[in-house]
Amino acid sequence: MFYFFQPLNHIRRVREWARRHDASVSLDIETFRLRVTRGQQTAQFFPRFAVDTGAGLAYSGYFGERGPFIGWLPYELKRWPIASDKLVFKQYCKQTGLPIPAYWQQGAPQSEHFIVKGQRGSFGQGIRGPFRADHAHALGVVLNDGEYFEQFIKGECVKVWCWNGRPTAMERLSAPFAVGDGRRTLREIVGTVRGSFDTVYDLDVSRDILAWQGFDPDSVVAEGQQVRLDFRYATPFDPTVINNRDVLSQQSDIMRAQLQQIGNSLAQAIPDELRSHTVFTVDAVVDAHDQLWLLEMNSHPMVHPANYAPILDDLFGIA
């Protein structure tokens, strides 16, 4: 996510639009609010920051002494039910026929592989698993208040940004993994620094997914075998990537059409008074058959720089 945390990546996109359309841009360094003016019309943008709360990352609009910048929105804050509660999101998807993994809160496991998630929260906080259904009883996997079971689908993590229901950017990320060498334990492999930009990783966060694959941190894995270390969008194993990871334009026509239909449908769930001029993201997973499965919606996301051109076009009435 390093790309999002660099203000210049955001400023450049706004400046490019302003130059194309003979507009001016000003930035208040006290509040980090941005103003774009074209002719007699002005649009104000409010900053977003990611803040470590101790319990995990959260979003803030306050330009304080800590927390990286994660983009501007043309409004201060919007919230709506299907973006605040994952079970409400799932119920809406089920009613409208949007593809989602199976989920349940009681009874026997409804899928061979599953995870435990909380109804609320972002950045993959509080997720447990994956677990195998035939191991669940032995492991004592039970739900806490506000949690539910969800079918675990092995695949690539997807995050899609939408403006007014229209997809504007997409990331599609493979799961982080380690490669066995037949000699060292997994703990030794991920704890070995190979270069000046490398780091040492802690496998304690990977115990569930290692066990799901039949390993633990002290397992010696066959040479060349890949072992997944996580499955979430944001993980402790993410490399520092300075390049733009937007791959929306590289998707098939079928995938882009599906994303457009999903964006339009989810936008209709936003209350009428909030729907116009709104950014949201959709988290999903793509399986081995290129099938998209929706996981959740976020009403106050990190802003992808690709959003600014369509946002500004709409705000200033440019076709």
Rank of each mutant, 00 (worst) to 15 (best):
F5N: 15
N9I: 03
D22V: 09
A23C: 01
R33Q: 13
R33K: 12
Q40Y: 11
Q40E: 15
F45Q: 02
R48T: 07
F63M: 12
G67L: 02
P68G: 07
F69R: 01
L98K: 00
L98H: 05
P99I: 06
Q106K: 13
A108N: 13
H113D: 12
S122L: 10
Q125V: 11
G129P: 03
A138T: 12
F152Q: 02
C157M: 10
V158D: 06
V158G: 02
G165V: 00
G165E: 05
R166W: 10
T168K: 09
E171A: 13
A178F: 02
V190E: 01
G195R: 09
G195N: 12
D198T: 04
I209H: 03
L210F: 04
G214I: 06
D216W: 06
D218Q: 07
V221N: 04
A222T: 08
G224T: 08
R228P: 08
T235H: 05
F237R: 06
F237Q: 05
D238H: 03
D238L: 06
P239G: 10
S249V: 12
Q250A: 12
E273D: 12
H277S: 10
T281S: 06
H289A: 14
L295K: 02
N298Y: 06
H300I: 15
A306S: 10
A309K: 09
I311F: 07
A319G: 14
